[in-house]
Write a protein that binds this DNA or RNA. Structure first.
Length: 877
RNA sequence: GCCCCGGUGGUGAAAUUGGUAGACACACCGGACUUAAAAUCCGUUGGCCGCAAGGCCGUGCCGGUUCGAUUCCGGCCCGGGGCACCA
């Protein structure tokens, strides 16, 4: 055994051993693991080139879970794969004139090496990459099945066009009116494309996320719920006879609106339509002023973020529609706050009971008619704002036959009357849109369709799948290179056999991540996308990934699963039973600002900090030139702030165990983690101490554990055993609730306890020590698998620590004849007293009252004495 | 604007969900070892008062419930995230 801890040697040896025995290959129904399967999976990485700290954190959490559960008898699966399609590869291709395929495959190779250097328990036999035909063939197969069932359909629609990336984005990919990757202002374009009917599943997706996913974090459930955005109300029409250019009534003579407050319908004093609404277009024909206003609205609507704060503006169209229940003529306005994309692009205006309508009516002097009062309140003294939002107390008033009805009654009555007129019905509206999956991009799954001059758009027959994406293209920034790839384009029409052209659009890469975690379960499955093995592993027991995927990926994957269920491919409703969203990794930032205000960011590794006597940072100097830089605060590690720490460099300097230990120790998995160079040093110092301690005690270790039963009679022995088992108990609890930072604390505490134990040289002491180290190494193993693997061997413990049984708390070790109880007087800590463990309440009370240190706080007889068993005594005076 | 999640020493954090606040670390300071430095080891470290024994205060702020509140309730302040003219 080496005297000094050498991470490089230790990790090389451990990793070679794992490789030699194929340690992490998971087999269905493996008899070695009696507790059954546990599928713990991380969100698959994009192969950007190298690992970042977010990956390290993600996979370490996954790995700790794996090792803990395996030692507890579970058949654990931890797979890995590559989100290998997507735009960065195209951008890199343009920059370096290399095909995306080549760039991607070499990145995968490099990142895989880095993962191996972390000592992760990955079953590589299940590795997948989204850009491999054997994978994306099944995207195409699902596409065709969904097309056949009408779950995918083609339509020409207004789409978000990203002018920098030259592609269409889903609504979800547009953030504040800008492309989620490029940051470019999004334009509207009309493009034919394929949509998936996720809205058909909106109700079920909402129901499960609201009520049936207890293993998901509350905030993710709320985010999804908001995203789906269910509203219940009534959709109804205002009849009219406004005719268009063709002489026919526009919209069949009906102006449809949607409202969640049909109980206020008698208070309508105007209608407002979106700038894009047919009535607006019609009215503008001979009205240049309105034309200009509509143009202004369309311009403004590009930047959604500004819309919320934008002033409510409108203009009358001069057109009138008929109120369906009163017959009154209602003027139609164009309003800049009405969205063409929601409902029917038109709203009824009830200024008395809607904040926006109220502001609008005030501004343009439109009538305000109150038709709601609060329960128990007079009609006259109710101000609209106070109870508009609270449907539970509103009563209809000033509305003829509806007077006196509460919300639910009014909705029913109004809906029934509108239905009788054939003008409306109850309706549920969602914020969620159908998912546009076509992308005008090269590096993705080809959409398996063929355009034939005679037959039109024809699906590729299943037998001809996969439609293989050529891997030799180099995009040049002028659109999709497939459009120039004759060998790809050229094909025969499956229907008529005549020469035809292939569709060149590819699928959104979110399709790839919809089901990859199921493909892991069925590697090599050629006859179907997943096989019987999927039934064994899925649904996934634990999914781990970043909060940034709380809506998009997780919603699409849930949708996809439900479609697969419909096709009989899976038997469950939801793919992910438990979800852990790990926190971001942060680091300090340093910058200099030039005269023009442009900031240059410096990597923390190149900056020297000076601190005051409390250790607070005072100033920062760039190592290179010794001149000061500004301290910019702690932010998410990113390229743009140049505050990333390279995991490879950390592993090189300290070893993987140190990197793992630090990332687990610094904060709980779900919280943000602040990088700290000295914290890493501390983690490394701990592992060096572990090694030195094991080295020093090696001669005393009796790995057989034979002497233990007779041992532990001395006070020091008992105390040590008690401490160790107590800490183990706590650590077990923390492992179960995935609070790994305190598990590391527990390891540190154990080492401290063993080091300071005052043991003699007896065989009994040696036995206690042997037990202690065996517990300690196994507890530390999930976090630091390499050093514990080697020490387990060096100290002569039996077998491979990987499959050692998890240490069990010995209740006998925890037993104490005497316990210390705290004494409070009026809730304030005043002293403590040792009492026999078996002491009854009266005895404890007496002992507490007799305690000298507390007596001076007690005058006369105590009013009351509260005894909390095993904890404390509170004396109330 | 609405909806979430946070706020605890100089710093990261803990407190098994109402029972000893600050575990475990980092940093700082002091000491040992060393010719010296690094490494290592030992010790102090929430604030205030006090020579000390000890006392008082203390988990963003103000109240409340309770024998007892970081934890529960009400109202504010601050930070982070999500949604945002959604009818």
């Amino acid at each position: 055994m080496q005297e000094k801890y050498s991470p490089a040697d230790v990790e090389k040896a451990a990793q070679a051993h794992w490789k030699a025995i194929d340690a992490y290959k998971a087999v269905e129904n493996d008899p070695r693991f009696p507790k059954g399967k546990y599928y713990a999976c991380s969100m698959l990485p994009y192969p950007s080139g190298k690992l970042h700290m977010g990956h390290v954190r993600n996979y370490t959490i996954n790995d700790v879970m794996y090792r803990y559960l395996r030692m507890n008898g579970y058949n654990v699966l931890m797979p890995m794969g590559w989100d290998a399609f997507g735009m960065p590869a195209e951008n890199a291709a343009m920059a370096n004139n290399v095909p995306p395929a080549q760039w991607t495959y070499s990145n995968i190779a490099h990142m895989k090496e880095q993962m191996e250097s972390m000592g992760l328990a990955i079953d590589w036999s299940r590795e997948m990459a989204a850009c491999k035909p054997e994978y994306y063939k099944w995207n195409q197969w699902m596409f065709l099945k969904m097309l056949e069932k009408g779950i995918i359909y083609k339509k020409t629609g207004t789409v978000n066009w990203d002018p920098i990336d030259q592609t269409v984005l889903a609504n979800e990919q547009v953030v504040d009116g800008r492309g989620w990757r490029s940051g470019a202002l999004i334009e509207k374009r009309e493009i034919p494309m394929y949509y998936a009917r996720i809205t058909d599943y909106a109700d079920e997706l909402l129901d499960y996320v609201d009520h049936k996913l207890p293993g998901w974090p509350e905030r993710v459930r709320i985010m999804q719920s908001n995203w789906i955005g269910k509203s219940t109300g009534v959709r109804f029409a205002f009849p009219h006879s406004i005719a268009g250019a063709d002489g026919q009534p526009i919209g069949d003579g009906k102006l449809f609106v949607f409202t969640t407050r049909p109980d206020t319908v008698m208070g309508v004093t105007f209608c407002a339509v979106a700038a894009e609404h047919p009535l607006a277009t019609h009215a503008a024909q001979n009205n240049p002023e309105l034309q200009a206003f509509i143009a202004e609205c369309k311009m403004g609507s590009v930047i959604e973020a500004d819309m919320a704060t934008m002033e409510k503006k409108g203009m009358p169209t001069g057109l009138f529609v008929t109120h369906p229940l009163t017959g009154a003529q209602v003027e139609v306005w164009v309003g800049n706050y009405v969205l063409i994309t929601y409902g029917d692009g038109a709203v009824m205006g009830v200024p008395a009971h809607d904040e926006r309508d109220f502001a609008f009516a005030k501004k343009y002097n439109l009538p305000i008619k109150q038709v709601i009062r609060a329960e128990g309140q007079d009609y006259s003294d109710a101000a609209w704002q106070e109870w508009y939002g609270d449907k539970s107390v509103s009563i209809v008033a000033n509305s003829g036959k509806y007077d006196g009805l509460n919300y639910a009654q009014a909705v029913d009555a109004v809906a029934a009357d509108l239905a009788a007129l054939g003008l409306g019905e109850k309706k549920v509206t969602f914020r969620l849109r159908d998912w546009g999956i076509s992308r005008q991009r090269y590096w993705g799954t080809p959409i398996p369709m063929i355009n034939c001059a005679d037959c039109g758009v024809v699906p590729v027959p299943e037998k001809d799948l996969p439609v293989v994406l050529p891997e030799d293209c180099v995009p040049d920034g002028t659109g999709n290179p497939l459009n120039k790839h004759e060998a790809f384009l050229k094909c025969d029409c499956p229907q008529c056999g005549k020469p035809a052209r292939r569709e060149t659009d590819t699928m959104d890469t979110f399709v790839d991540s919809c089901w990859y975690y199921m493909r892991y379960t069925s590697p090599g499955s050629n006859a179907s996308m997943v096989d019987a093995r999927n039934d064994y592993w899925m649904p996934m027991d634990q999914y781990i990934g970043g909060i940034e995927h709380a809506v998009l990926h997780l919603l699409y994957a849930r949708f996809w699963t439900k479609v697969m269920r419909e096709f009989g491919l899976v038997k469950f409703d939801e793919p992910f039973v438990n979800l852990l969203t790990q926190g971001m990794v942060l680091n300090e930032t340093y910058y200099r600002e030039d005269a023009a205000g442009k900031k240059t960011w410096f990597n923390p590794a190149d900056v020297e900090l000076t601190t005051d006597d409390k250790g607070r940072p005072q100033s920062a100097l760039l190592k290179e030139d010794g001149a000061p830089v500004q301290i910019g605060g702690t932010e998410k590690m990113s390229k743009s702030k140049n505050n990333g720490i390279d995991p490879a460099a950390q592993i090189e300097q300290y070893g993987a165990d140190t990197a793992r230990l630090f990332t687990m120790f610094a904060s709980p998995p779900e919280q943000t983690l602040e990088w700290s160079g000295s914290g890493v040093e501390g983690a490394n110092r701990f592992l060096r101490r572990v090694w030195s301690y094991a080295y020093a005690q090696k001669a005393r270790i009796d790995a057989s554990g034979a002497a233990l039963t007779a041992a532990a009679n001395g006070d020091a022995q008992k105390t040590l055993r008690r401490e160790l088992h107590k800490v183990l108990q706590q650590a077990d609890y923390d492992l179960k609730r995935i609070q790994y930072n305190t598990v590391v604390s527990a390891c540190m505490k154990m080492l401290n306890t063993m080091e300071s134990a005052k043991l003699d040289d007896s065989a009994e002491s040696n036995a206690v020590l042997s037990e202690g180290l065996a517990i300690f190494l196994r507890l530390l193993n999930p976090v630091a698998p390499h050093i514990t693997h080697v020490l387990w061997q060096e100290l002569g413990y039996a077998g491979d620590i990987l499959d050692a049984a998890w240490p069990q708390v010995d209740p006998a070790a925890l037993e104490q004849s005497e316990i210390e109880m705290m004494i409070q007087v009026n809730g304030k800590l005043r002293g403590s007293v040792k009492v026999a463990k078996a002491a009854d309440k009266a005895a404890i009370e007496a002992a507490a009252l007799a305690e000298e240190s507390v007596q001076k706080f007690i005058e006369g007889t105590p009013k009351k004495v509260i005894v909390v068993p095993g904890k404390l005594v509170n004396i109330v005076v």
